[in-house]
């Protein structure tokens, strides 16, 4: 999967989760920029990403992601 594929996958998951098809994510997007993406929705997002993409994030990573790009990078590393 390319970075763009992963970005598309994450966007799709977040759109479904927050029921908001207008969400557009870029590598630089941060959580506070997306309405409704609070800490509870974040946990659910991580759980959904793990099950859809077949990865398990480490605790430290889950706590340290700043941008969507950080998540993409980590998924790629875990899928390798």
């Amino acid at each position: 999967m390319t970075d763009q594929d992963l970005l598309d996958a994450l966007t799709g998951i977040l759109r479904d989760l927050l029921d908001d098809p207008s969400i557009v994510l870029t590598m630089a997007t941060t959580r506070p920029e997306v309405p409704g993406w609070d800490s509870f929705a974040y946990v659910n997002f991580i759980v959904a990403v793990e099950s859809q993409l077949g990865v398990r994030f480490r605790l430290a990573d889950v706590e340290s992601f700043q941008t969507v790009g950080d998540i993409v990078k980590e998924v790629r590393a875990l899928q390798r």
């Binding site: 998951i13 479904d16 989760l17 029921d19 659910n44 759980v47 959904a48 099950s51 859809q52």
Partner: peptide
Amino acid sequence: LSYLELMQLDAA
């Protein structure tokens, strides 16, 4: 349903 689908169905 998957976990995400469950959340979507509940939202609906």
